[in-house]
């Protein structure tokens, strides 16, 4: 972990702008826009049963590399991913944004979220803390890693097939 004052690190404003955009693309089911945020070495992870499990040995809710993110998005785009067809109506709030570390061209940030999902099943509240690894590239910022620790990750969860 290098200094937070490193030249390549992102400032809080840049980070927030990116997180808000990522949240809006997910809320509005802009699948192509959301997928375009990711780097080639992407990892999208939602652990189950607690925050510190070993995803190579334990079950996760989502543990997608770049190729599986692409499959997930393609499936959503078929219009026959019934758990998201019709899509959930959603809005999420992102707050408590903090810079955790700067490592080379990557900035690791943490943020809380509160998401309200509405669909015919009813209204579901989702909440948790997300860790992002953001990478500065020539034409902006990309997402290399997103770990979403749900506050209720140890409990039985409703279907979660939207982009969290």
């Amino acid at each position: 972990m290098s200094s937070l004052a490193g030249h390549t690190g992102l400032d809080l404003h840049e980070i927030e702008e990116f997180l808000y955009r990522e949240a809006r693309l997910a809320d509005e089911h802009d699948y192509d826009g959301w997928e375009a945020l990711w780097t080639d070495d992407a990892l999208y992870w939602v652990p189950a049963g607690g925050p510190d499990i070993d995803p190579e040995r334990q079950m996760s809710v989502i543990y997608d590399n770049r190729s599986r993110i692409s499959t997930r998005i393609s499936q959503l785009k078929t219009g026959k991913r019934y758990s998201q067809s019709p899509p959930s109506n959603m809005r999420r709030l992102i707050s408590n944004v903090e810079v955790v570390a700067v490592e080379g061209t990557d900035t690791v940030a943490g943020a809380n979220f509160l998401l309200v999902e509405s669909r015919e099943r009813g209204t579901t509240l989702w909440a948790g803390r997300t860790t992002y690894r953001l990478r500065r590239v020539e034409d902006g910022i990309r997402l290399a890693y997103k770990k979403v620790v749900l506050v209720n990750s140890a409990e039985a969860l409703s279907t979660l097939s939207f982009l969290i």
Partner: peptide, 12 residues
């Protein structure tokens, strides 16, 4: 599971 590419749709 909840986000599974098969079971989420079964559950729906």
């Amino acid at each position: 599971g909840p986000a599974g590419m098969l079971l989420a749709d079964d559950s729906e």
